[in-house]
């Protein structure tokens, strides 16, 4: 076993103390401490199922060593919202049938949130294709997902304008 260190992580706004070996990925750590909404797919940065936000930027948690996360705020899809208080993107994905088996959905929503907050809040189809090129869906095809992104982005802009 490689060196184990006690690390402080900020997961969805909650401080968590974890003992993580040097070679543990953030994906492994998060699922071990119960954040199983972060999905394990390819474990090589191709599929995007494990995406989380680090200080608001989407990364593949399977490629991130827990020891390099430091102070950065980790946000999983549950940190954006849940059944009681859904995020506009979650509502849009549900309403427009953008999920079938649902395994890719947490990563799709995280990648979309990163697009809308870091790159553009008014994405066109080319922006969406570029932003979701690292997220694979094997059920629906991507048409409904792109529709949900457009719809969710519109809902987020409207919510922002109503503030």
């Amino acid at each position: 076993m490689t060196n184990v260190k006690t690390r402080q992580l900020s997961v969805n706004g909650v401080k968590r103390t974890v003992d993580a070996p040097a070679n543990e990925t953030l994906l492994e750590t998060l699922r071990r401490i119960g954040a199983v909404e972060v999905k394990c797919g390819c474990e090589k940065g191709d599929c995007g199922a494990c995406a989380v936000l680090l200080d608001g930027e989407a990364v593949d948690s399977c490629l991130t060593l827990t020891g390099t996360v430091g102070e950065r705020a980790i946000t999983t899809v549950k940190g954006l919202g849940g059944a009681e208080n859904p995020h506009p993107l979650q509502t849009a994905f549900a309403d427009l049938g953008a999920a079938q088996c649902g395994y890719c959905t947490p990563g799709m929503i995280i990648a979309t949130q990163s697009l809308l907050t870091n790159d553009t809040d008014t994405p066109d189809e080319a922006d969406i294709r570029l932003a979701l090129s690292g997220n694979l869906c094997r059920c629906t095809g991507y048409t409904k997902i792109y529709d949900a992104v457009l719809d969710g982005a519109r809902a987020m802009r409207e919510a922002e304008a109503a503030k």
């Binding site: 995007g48 593949d60 490629l63 990163s114 697009l115 932003a131």
Partner: peptide, 28 residues
């Protein structure tokens, strides 16, 4: 990709960045 000056001083780098893996990998 987020620096608009890159188009002026290195358009080929922008071309390369746009086809580079997927978003999460590009962010990292």
């Amino acid at each position: 990709l987020r620096d608009p000056r890159m188009l002026e001083v290195g358009a080929a780098m922008v071309d390369g960045s746009r086809v580079f893996a997927g978003q999460m990998v590009r962010n990292t």
